[in-house]
Computed example of a mutant assay.
Amino acid sequence: MTELQEPGSELLGQQHPSLPVVRVGEATLPTTSGTFRAVAYRQADGVEHLALLTGEVGDGHDVLVRMHSECMTGDVLGSLRCDCGPQLHAALDAISAEGRGIVLYLRGQEGRGIGLAEKIAAYALQEQGRDTVEANLDLGLPVDARDYTGAVAVLRDLGVRDVELMTHNPVKVEALQAHGVPVVRRRDLPVAPTSDNLRYLRTKRDRMGHRLPGVG
Rank of each mutant, 00 (worst) to 15 (best):
M67T: 07
D45P: 14
L11Y: 02
V76E: 08
D45T: 13
F36E: 00
G25S: 13
T203W: 09
L19D: 11
V184N: 02
V163Q: 01
E98W: 03
F36A: 00
R202F: 07
G111C: 05
T35S: 12
R130A: 15
R186S: 01
L165G: 02
G99D: 06
Q177A: 15
R23M: 10
T203H: 08
V24E: 13
K119A: 11
H61T: 12
V160S: 05
T167I: 06
G55L: 06
D93H: 13
Q177I: 04
Q128D: 11
T2D: 03
V163G: 01
G8E: 07
A38V: 14
V143M: 01
R187S: 01
E118Q: 14
A44L: 13
Y148L: 13
R187M: 02
E56F: 00
V184K: 04
A124N: 12
M208T: 05
L50G: 06
G108Q: 02
E98V: 00
P190S: 03
A40D: 12
A97R: 14
Y41D: 12
V215K: 06
A44S: 15
V181K: 01
V143H: 04
L189T: 04
V191S: 04
V103C: 02
T35I: 12
V63Y: 02
R186Y: 00
G46M: 06
M67E: 02
P30E: 11
E110R: 03
V215Q: 09
V173L: 12
G99L: 07
N197Y: 06
A124Y: 00
L88T: 07
A38F: 09
V133R: 10
Q43I: 00
A117C: 05
A153E: 11
C84H: 03
E48S: 14
G99S: 05
G113D: 04
L106M: 15
H49W: 02
N169G: 10
Y123E: 09
R205K: 14
D62W: 01
V65H: 00
K172A: 13
V47L: 02
D188A: 14
L53K: 06
E10I: 14
I95S: 07
Q126L: 05
E48D: 11
G58E: 11
A38E: 11
K204E: 09
L92V: 08
L155H: 09
S69T: 00
R207W: 07
H179M: 14
L155I: 08
P86M: 08
R187Q: 04
A124R: 15
